[in-house]
Amino acid sequence: MDRFNLNSQLEHLQSKYVGTGHADTNKFEWMVNQHRDSYASYIGHHALISYFSVAQNESIARVKFEFVEKMLQPCGMPVPRDE
C-alpha cells in the first residue's frame, strides 16, 4: 500500500468517525474526545446515569441535559495550536 493511499484512507476514517486521532492530535483535542466519549457513554447507560442522578440529587433528565451541554466544551476554551 503506497503512502498516498494510506493518507486518504486515514482522512476518510477521520471524517467518518469523529474522534479518530491523527499524527498532530494535541493533548487538548485528545482530552476533549475522551470527555465527549465518556459523557455519551454515561447518557447511554441507564445504570450510570441513575448513579449520577442519585449522587447529585437531580432528576435523570436534568443530569442528561447537563451532560450534553458539557459535551460542547468539556475542557473549556480550546488552546491555540502551536504551529
Binding site: V18, G19, D37, A40, S41, I43, G44
Partner: peptide, 10 residues
C-alpha cells in the same frame, strides 16, 4: 455496537 457518541440508537 456499544453506547457511543456517534452511533445512532439514543
Amino acid at each position: 455496537s456499544g453506547c457511543r457518541r456517534i452511533v445512532p440508537g439514543q
